[in-house]
Simulated assay, not measured.
Amino acid sequence: MKLDVITLDAGKAGSVELSDDIFAIGEVRADLLQRAVKWQLSRRQAGTHRAKERAEIARTGKKFGRQKGGGSARHGSRRAPIFVGGGKAHGPKVRSHATELPKKVRALALKHALSSKAGSSSLIVLDEARLDAPKTAALKAQFAKLGLTSALIIDGETLDENFALAARNIPHVDVLPAQGLNVYDVLRRDTLVLTKSAVEKINERFAAKESA
């Protein structure tokens, strides 16, 4: 598929050929996208929540009442979970929430995410994402010309420092290098913006995976 290339000033800068195997798969599979997003978010969970169990409570273990005749149930320790201040029964433990997802499924999900943006006309190709100075107001005005209010901008191997500094103060706009392209960030923004360098890196990325 062919797409027009534009500049930050909304001017035309030729066109670029996008691979149909990456950007025009056809029917987008929501199940693959869901699995990829779940895999990403599960790896971000800290899993550091923890509660003390009975053996970790700093309380005496001495039997505090008579075995019989006290008028209440028999108990041997105030550290038991039924008492206020006692240990937590089956409480949370430090663990990893990460799940597994095969590399081929991850790659296919990313293709479907890219295809979903291309299929809904929510994909823009920029000539380059560079600024002479890190001016947020100027960049915001350029985004207004392009109609960008919620966008993920993917550049080449490295980001232009001025562009990244100017864009980080604009709400609902994310800027990532090509190696940071992922399903979750593609889906969470309304528009996907790729530079020509990003398109080359994406093609190289999938070519390397298919040859592996």
Rank of each mutant, 00 (worst) to 15 (best):
L148K: 00
A113I: 01
F64V: 02
V125C: 03
S116T: 07
S150M: 12
P134N: 05
L146F: 02
K135Q: 15
K88Y: 10
P102A: 12
A109F: 11
G47T: 01
L108T: 10
S120R: 03
E53I: 06
G119Y: 02
R54F: 12
G87E: 05
A55N: 13
F143W: 11
K52H: 03
R43W: 04
G65M: 08
V105S: 05
K117A: 05
D127A: 05
T48R: 08
A129P: 03
I82V: 15
A80T: 09
L152M: 11
P81K: 05
K103F: 09
R74W: 04
K38M: 14
P81D: 02
Q40K: 14
A137V: 10
K62W: 11
A107Y: 12
A24C: 10
S42G: 06
A46M: 08
V28E: 14
K140D: 15
A141S: 14
D132K: 12
E27A: 15
E56G: 01
I25C: 09
G70C: 02
S77V: 05
L146R: 02
G70I: 00
K63V: 05
L114D: 07
A133P: 11
F23P: 02
F64H: 09
P102T: 13
R95V: 07
K145D: 11
E53L: 02
A151M: 09
L152V: 08
A129S: 08
D31H: 03
R79C: 09
A55R: 12
R44I: 06
A141Q: 12
R43P: 06
D132Y: 15
